[in-house]
Amino acid sequence: MNVMDTRATSAMLYLDGVHVSFDGFHAINNLSLALEPGEMRAIIGPNGAGKTTMMDIITGKTKPDEGTVLFDGSVDLTRLDETRIAELGIGRKFQKPTVFESQTVQDNLLLALNVDHSVRGTLFWRGSKGESERIDKVLETIRLTDARNRLAGSLSHGQKQWLEIGMLLAQDPKVLLVDEPVAGMTDVETHLTAELLKQINKNHTIMVVEHDMTFVRELGVKVTCLHEGSVLAEGSIDQVSSNERVVEVYLGR
């Protein structure tokens, strides 16, 4: 890891000239993007634009062929694995909600809590009042208090989405990568999710991928449109949605 005082950028997340290809297919093409600390950024783009792949790169799941990926201005994420990146404080919600289905809602949150994650720490773990209070608070925030003892696998799709957001809250990372949080939610739930993300944004940096334009509009943040693995347009939602090339890409499908 680089020395902390040699910050190359002020950005919390910084991608520059990133390339990824899968068997010759260029999923990410010269992608450059910067997220300032405390910022919330919405990422839009047609299917296959590379939005999820970008999150895979940031979280260490996919190694880029080329390019720079920096966290906090100095940490080279391309050299670290998923665990280390999560430890640094990058949390992720997956496009397909991924919770631990055979465990209770409460245990899912317990597993996500950012406490000692070593073998010894978990083997001799004895919960504390502070921990259970945090879990209670998250349960309240995601409105699953009454479902705390239910198996996560028995939740509805929307509830799983919320549980996964709750896991992010419990993890309390510096940066949250949220992939399609409102897929399968009702309008009311979508609205609540937007409110929740805005709330979380008060002290976290967030990158959120979403197709639902009402939702993106409600967030009211800077929008980046990806297409064929690179940035097509960037700006306010009105600027981006009136951009000719963006319109073309979306209508041309």
Partner: peptide
Amino acid sequence: KLGKVLIAIRDAESRTRFLG
């Protein structure tokens, strides 16, 4: 709690990694 982590690994190994 280690047992819960083991089950998490069994059911969703990569997810467990992303939790650190």
